[in-house]
Design a protein around this nucleic acid. Sequence first.
DNA 1: GTATTTGCAAATGATTTGCAGTGCT
DNA 2: AGCACTGCAAATCATTTGCAAATAC
Lengths: 134, 134
Amino acid sequence: MKHEHLLKSYQLKATPQRIAIIELMFAAGHISIEELFHSIQNKFTSISLATLYKNIHTMMDVSLIREVKIAGQKTKYEIEKEAHAHVMCKCCGELKDIPFNPNTLLQTSMDISNYQAEEVSIVISGVCPECQKK
Amino acid sequence: MKHEHLLKSYQLKATPQRIAIIELMFAAGHISIEELFHSIQNKFTSISLATLYKNIHTMMDVSLIREVKIAGQKTKYEIEKEAHAHVMCKCCGELKDIPFNPNTLLQTSMDISNYQAEEVSIVISGVCPECQKK
DNA sequence: GTATTTGCAAATGATTTGCAGTGCT
DNA sequence: AGCACTGCAAATCATTTGCAAATAC
């Protein structure tokens, strides 16, 4: 089971609940707590939301997964991977990844996704000049 | 008062509370409900959070303001303007705008902001191929 | 004057916490 | 065996709603 090893490589205990979370996250690409909760109940009838939240945070702390917040949508989570952009459909809410290449981003995004792009929101995070001094 | 006209140009009644919201939003650039609430209480001791939320939504409905969600931060709001990118400091959380030019985005962002850029998250929204058919 | 907006209080929704019992390594 | 994890219930925080009184136009 490769997901078990994935967890262990981050020094996390491989509990069945955690393995299921990772599995579903890989399968869905981007998943909200609510979706995760409903899907996971097929396997673990008595899993609790608290467990999901706790695990989500544990996994974020070690950068195994990442939080994806988008205006007008519920918070979703995804497995960490190379830098990439998200294309979101304003109509159905679907979220897709596209390779991230800043030089050709917009053209590529429309070519690859066939979306009719209307808005772009970009967040670059790092350390600001003041904080670099510390 | 230009903010009064701004509101009216969107067909919204120019109540003092709304004018204060716009003023503070211009002054702060990006502001959370919490910050807005505390600042606005200097003028309106008895303003309620419900009023803020209602107005925020009214203004979003007409695209006067926009919601800005960022992983690890509280939701913030900003006045709508040209497409732009945000640079966020991982250390202090400060959010700054930078002009948006996809072709030179990364280089420019580091030059302009002096941030040590570590992560990029981009959301492009539009209408997906399936939804375009409808 | 009329429709909209405000502020309050209560409701709902999302996330977090404490704790006793269980399970991974 | 020992420490971390789970599930439950309760607590907290964020957002929304209903309603009567106040206000913009």
